[in-house]
Design a protein around this nucleic acid. Sequence first.
DNA 1: GTGAAAGCGCTAACAT
DNA 2: ATGTTAGCGCTTTCAC
Lengths: 349, 349
Amino acid sequence: MKKQSVTLVQVAAKAGVSVMTASRAMSGDGYVSEDTKAKVQAAAKALGYAPNALARVMKGGRTNVIGVVVNDLSSVVVNAFVSALTEEVRKYEMDLFIYNSVGQLDEQTQRRHSQLLHGLWDGLIYVLPRMTDEYLEALERSESPIVLVNFCRRETTLPVVQGDNFNAARDAVAGLISQGHKRIAFIKGTHWTGQSAERERGYRQAMADAHLQIDDHWVQQGTFSEQSGQEACARLLAHDARPTAIFCANDEMAIGCMNAARELNVQVPEELSLIGFDDVSAASIVRPQLTTMRHPLPLMAQAAVQELMRRILGQPGKRQRVEFPAEMVVRESTAPAAGTVTKRRTRKA
Amino acid sequence: MKKQSVTLVQVAAKAGVSVMTASRAMSGDGYVSEDTKAKVQAAAKALGYAPNALARVMKGGRTNVIGVVVNDLSSVVVNAFVSALTEEVRKYEMDLFIYNSVGQLDEQTQRRHSQLLHGLWDGLIYVLPRMTDEYLEALERSESPIVLVNFCRRETTLPVVQGDNFNAARDAVAGLISQGHKRIAFIKGTHWTGQSAERERGYRQAMADAHLQIDDHWVQQGTFSEQSGQEACARLLAHDARPTAIFCANDEMAIGCMNAARELNVQVPEELSLIGFDDVSAASIVRPQLTTMRHPLPLMAQAAVQELMRRILGQPGKRQRVEFPAEMVVRESTAPAAGTVTKRRTRKA
DNA sequence: GTGAAAGCGCTAACAT
DNA sequence: ATGTTAGCGCTTTCAC
């Protein structure tokens, strides 16, 4: 920082009072006569004075700034969540700064981010963090207010707000099963955040609940990208015994599946039902519109900020882990399995 | 800031040296014997010492952090640009923090953001800023390194990096005209950032260049949203003399046009050509895939960071305003006007 | 090579 | 109601 142009000292000098009086006049607390207060504020305005937040912080004050660390800002879900956070922090008169870590948080980044832990922020929210165990331990040791969002890789003493991926996935697949599907495939994403694993667990549970065997090749590895979904789907459709439905660990991969289906002249949803996850905006743009699972991002943002503010204000934390149920958004990419007579149809007939 | 747990003083004590020696050992400059250096660093590691960036800054150091202020992070273009910036700043070993201003920057926000100008950041990038004149003037007076991106509302002494909206729009419309279109409509976006106005200027120029009259109702007001594009298109298609092509101020509105066309059973591109602007990811997801104009975001990010770093390092600024030409991305939503015999077709026939 | 002192801008705690 | 003192954690300056 180059020397600050205009400081409290100068304001005080111009107003003809001590620095302390000026400080009191500006911050508003402590006893100052209305007279001097006005005088000081006039001087401040004339000089174009702006308080130095750093100095204030060094004395133990708050910055009224919350930091949020995300591992991939270009992800539509993350972006939507950050928007929800931005709105939410305003209710507490706080500001939000976003840091895009782009990948794994390790010791090296931690070194560079020491400032993240000390002073610049009143509190920190980690969204879908991918971090080494050392990093997490450092966070746990730190006394700064911290909230983790959608962190499910291992247990931690830090407060966690998350969407319930397991039950959402189970519901999605159970929905397909109730529409007569028996040959249901799953396309995984990368394992980094643990989200995909939870969704796979839900898939397997639903299949087990219905006493359906899972063929080895029904579980395909993807990378959360549209391209990877397209390739995985092509592999699935190449087999003799094609699945009649695919549950994808996210929407992008499901959209990739649509592309693959179109290329192979497989009709969606008549011949192939598709369910994605996340309800990104593209899900309602593609045709047929994509059926998908949606986390209640605004509620989750609210919970995360609430919990963080409690810690910032020194109030006791409430719950260690809160989990929110997802909502199923039924659109056009799912239909009863071909040749299936559902109850509704029976009634009609 | 609660008192920092472990400071240089403690490290120095543990290593049995003075604070100053410890400081030198950690930062690496100044003369320190290898011996003491190792001793100090060992002590630092053992204690889990992390330097306090704030204190360092207060003494005149750099934070190695660049701030970027955007007015709408949920915008796909802004998001893509921020990603490009994130990558770019890494080349300079800097970190990037993002602030989502969500709307107009005025005096009130300025008050709260004094910290933006002093100390926390080595430099600031404003992307597509919407700000009052007072705010801009404060920025111009400030001595902090600042770069504006895509700011075209009025002249300024600050360095500006921008995409050439005018020529891009002219090229887009000229392209339609060369395909035989004569009845070409334009859907504007909101006027806030001045982008839409530039694109409209390019549209009008191209029409004038080709001596084509613009019907009053061909220029429709939208809000950059898909919904608004759909409505505007419905209005355009309701007229007797329908346009054969629509140039939209952004992709979302063009996608809205597709929806309107589908509802009214108008074939795209056979009966209606569509061009958007920005090349957002949805542009290649919709069918038919959208023809659009693309700003060279990575190049622009590079230029912005370069210029900012020059100022941070105290080197002379290079150019005051740099403008980058856009690229036309031809996909499936444009075709020769119905009944037009283009040269290529003539040759075929 | 290493250390002591001063001070960045601000405010909490104590005087007056 | 106002002023004085001290100190947050660090680095620059100058002394040893």
